[in-house]
Every structure is written in C-alpha cells, then in structure tokens.
Design a protein around this nucleic acid. Structure first.
Lengths: 216, 216
DNA sequence: AGTATTATTAGACAAGTGTATACGAAAGAC
DNA sequence: GTCTTTCGTATACACTTGTCTAATAATACT
C-alpha cells in the first residue's frame, strides 16, 4: 500500500518534461465558441495541461505571451491551408475565389479552431493581441493583392486598385466567417455562395469603374 | 464629532435611489478600447456606480441582462444617428453613401462609445450577446436594403440583389469600423475614402453583373 | 402621526485568481 | 560517483469575485 502510494506520488508529483507545445495545446482545447484566449486564466490553462500553476512561467512570461503565440500559430497555419487551396484550385481548374472561400469556411469547423481564434481575438484583449491579429490579416491581404495582380496580368487587363480590393475581400471574408461561426454547418454552403457573389461584385465593379475613369 | 460621524454615515450609508440608467452609465464609463462589457465584473460596475454590490440585483437579473440592455441601447442610438445623417444628406444634396459613412465613422470617437461596443460584443460573450448584436446588425441591413431599393427605383433601374449588397455593405462598414477603432483619428478620412470606394465597387459591380445575366 | 413595504446596505462566505518563496526531483558536467 | 543547474511542485498570501443573510434607511400608505 505504501509502495503504491510511493510510486503514485512519484509519477504524480513530477512531470517528466513540459513543452511549450503542451501548454499551447491545452489552451487550444479550452477555447470554444464562448471562450476567447484572452479570457482564459493562467490556472485554468495549467489545470487543463495537468501541471502546476507556477510551471507556466518557465515557458511563458505571461498569458498574454501565450496568446500572441497562439495567434501567430493560427495565422500561419491558416495561410498555409489557404495556400494549398490556391494550388489545388489551379490543378482542378476550379475557380480560385470559390476554392479559397470554401477552404476558408471549412476551417471554421476544423480541429484546432484556428480560424475562430483569429476572428475573435482581434476585437478584444490587449493591444499586443490586436496587433498580432492585424498582422496576420495583413499577410492575407498582401498575398491576395499579389494574386489579383497575377490574375489581372494573365487576362491582360490592368489591375484595378488591387490593394483596395484585397482589403475589401479580406474584411468581407472575415466578417462573413464570423457570421458563419454562429450558424449551423448546413447554412455554410449558402453563405459561401453569397460570399463568392459579393467578391465577384467587388471585382467586376472595380473593373467597371476603372474603365470609366482610366486615370484618376 | 459624533454628529459629523452620524451625518456622514447617513449620507454615505444610503443612496437615495438608484436607477437602471445610473448603472448603465457606469458600465458605459468602464468599457474602453480594452474592456468589453462581457469582461466587466458585477463588483466593478457597482463600484463605479457607487453602490453596494447587492443593489445591482434589484435592477438587473445578471450582468448579462445589463449587457443585452446596453447593446440594444447602442444599436437604437446608432440607427437614430445614421437615420438623421440620411436625412441631412438629402437636404445638403450630398451623397447618401458618403454622408452615412462619415457619420458612422464619427461615431467611433463620439461619447458613449456606442459603436465600439457594438463592434466588440458581437464576437465574444454568451449567445444572448451575439444574438442581440446580430439583431442590431440586421436592423441596419434591413434599412439599407430599403434604401437601395428606393434609390434604384428613383434611377428607374431594377435593383440588383439589394439584400445581398446591403449585407456586404454592412459587414464591410462594420469591419472597417473595427479597423478604424485602432487607428488615430487622422487616418479616418482616408479610411472613409477607401470605404466609400469599396461600396461603389460593390454597387456598380452588382449592376454590371445583373445587366449581363438578366435573370439567373 | 404610525405602520408597512421596499430599496439599499453591511458583513460574511466559499471559491477562484496571480504570484512569491522555498523545496525536491531529474538531468548534465566533470 | 558527486555537484550544479534546471525544471516542476507545494504551500501560502493577499486579493477579487458572485451571492447569501440579516439589518436598516427611505418611501408610500392610511
């Protein structure tokens, strides 16, 4: 009996080794439709990770640092996914816009909840948070701008204010994504259609305007 | 001495009467760029209002109820302001779009912070929160749809999917508004220009598409 | 006037929070 | 092997939180 107690105490009293990733995963497990990272308490996270509260500090200076870390992870993961979608779109000869949007919305319900995190954390929390999220948004915007320019050149038309369109599209997609978050998955297809239509409106509108006012 | 003590105790020990409005105002004073209503604690609010924690319950069942109340107040106030802007636009013969957007962005920095509240609370918090915010967004969308139809009829062209445009515009405006929140006021004019341009793209794009595919 | 009702308070409770200090186990250096 | 350093833990502290109970001030009623 004392033996079991001892072995138990040994295994329970000390974790072999804790990695930053373990803590991040624990945090990811906790965020949900009603919990933003900013609202997670240090103790909650360590409890979920199965470690002592103080151990947290060995890996992160504060919960804020962890949050920024998670945001960056979410952003880079998502960009990777979308990048693959663009690639697949070329292979399948499917519309780049539609393919990207579909992939994006898919990410709403995929594991890791990276997209919801990005959608949420940009609005609340400290300046560091918002900055981190805005940075990720900017990355999206930038890549999209390049895409638009490339497409325009391929169709041998002058790109009509690609940065502005990219900005609008990014905002639209993220806003509609936030919307979709609170809708059942059955509605997603319809929302995708709407979103694709909106984007087409934007692009054709930009072209129409550019044609009427060549240099403004 | 005992007299002063007594009078002090009388005035300090008991507030004459507390109104729901007092509590709402206190809450409004506390929300800022880094604090959402959802993150306010009951005690914080009562402290700010200068009342005892328990007194809160006489007026609101929970902080959630207060929050929903504030959201609705923010929404109706804003719709009123935008409505006036539309009216003024007709008088001044200024573009309705531009006028509305200008008014909207102005509200970002106006007292009460109604717009920031609406922008923030839709993303975090309980379902009741989100529902309340979504409802306000829907009101905006609805009014905008009617406007679009009216404008289209005035220019005697068939309205091209007004609900969809209204949805897109609403999302765009709110998203860009959130953006503007974290930018200094000097940048707002430029952002207004961008936003107006985006909206024009949307509308002309919608018309162009409708013209090419009359009935789809 | 005096009484009844209602609104506000004070005080206390258990639970949860972030963090400081001090201690013990694991692993690396020699 | 021992020594040192690193890493995880335990305990403790002061603080905040939401809510319960009971007491008391203000108001309304007659």
């Amino acid at each position: 009996m004392s033996e079991t107690e001892q072995t138990q105490k040994r295994s329970a009293g000390r974790k072999a080794t804790i990695s930053r990733e373990d803590i991040i995963e624990a945090a990811l497990r906790l965020v949900g439709p009603h919990r933003s990272i900013s609202s997670l308490s240090l103790r909650e996270i360590t409890r979920e990770a199965g470690i002592a509260p103080n151990s947290f500090y060995r890996h992160f200076k504060s919960t804020e640092e962890l949050a920024v870390c998670v945001i960056e992870l979410a952003g880079s993961t998502l960009r990777k996914v979308i990048g693959q979608a663009r690639f697949r779109a070329q292979e399948l000869n499917k519309g780049i816009v539609r393919m990207s949007i579909e992939t994006f919305i898919e990410q709403l319900t995929s594991d890791g909840h990276y997209l919801p995190i990005l959608l949420r954390e940009g609005v609340v929390g400290s300046d560091r948070f918002k900055l981190a999220v805005r940075q990720q948004l900017n990355f999206f915007e930038q890549e999209l701008t390049e895409d638009l320019i490339a497409i325009a050149q391929r169709t041998s038309s002058t790109p009509a204010r690609p940065e502005l369109i990219a900005k609008a599209i990014t905002r639209l997609v993220f806003a509609m994504g936030t919307d979709a978050l609170d809708h059942p998955k059955e509605d997603h297809n319809e929302m995708i259609d709407e979103l694709v239509m909106m984007i087409k409106m934007l692009i054709t509108g930009a072209h129409a305007i550019a044609r009427n006012q060549p240099v403004n």
